[in-house]
Amino acid sequence: MRDAVALAVNTADLEGLLDLGAPGTEYTNQIDALTGLVLRGGLPMDAVAGVWEDSFGPESAAIGKPAEFAGLVEQLEKTSSRWVAHDRS
């Protein structure tokens, strides 16, 4: 589960930090928080945005990338759906 969230977050790289050469662990806090949301099945856009804003503030680079941010939320929702389906089987 956490690996799937990490892949989605790192692929999106909404802040552009990995592209700037930051280590692959740069988004660890966000990945942990988002994994918790996925496990609880709560992924409304505002909850994901809250995780991001808590980490990077209201001037986050993600604010200027609504399509990319929505894409991350979509990937997290898919991960959550797979987790819920797997957990129920």
Rank of each mutant, 00 (worst) to 15 (best):
A67N: 15
L72Y: 05
P66S: 04
G57M: 12
S55Q: 14
F69M: 07
P66F: 07
V73D: 05
S55M: 05
A49S: 05
G50K: 01
G71S: 09
P58M: 10
A49F: 01
V73F: 03
E68Y: 08
W52K: 12
F69G: 00
E53Y: 04
T79D: 03
P58W: 09
F69V: 03
D54G: 09
A61E: 10
P66D: 05
G71P: 00
S60F: 06
G64F: 12
E74D: 10
P58Q: 11
V51Y: 02
A67P: 04
E53N: 12
I63M: 15
E53H: 06
E74F: 06
E59I: 00
L76T: 00
S55P: 00
Q75P: 01
A49T: 09
S60C: 14
G57H: 04
G57W: 10
P58L: 14
T79G: 02
V51I: 14
A67I: 09
L76V: 06
I63F: 12
V51G: 02
A61K: 13
A49K: 04
F56A: 14
L76E: 00
G64Q: 15
G57N: 13
A61Y: 11
F56V: 12
G64N: 12
E59Y: 02
D54A: 14
P66E: 01
I63S: 10
G57T: 13
P66R: 09
V48W: 01
L72F: 07
E59G: 09
V51T: 05
S60M: 11
G50I: 07
Q75V: 04
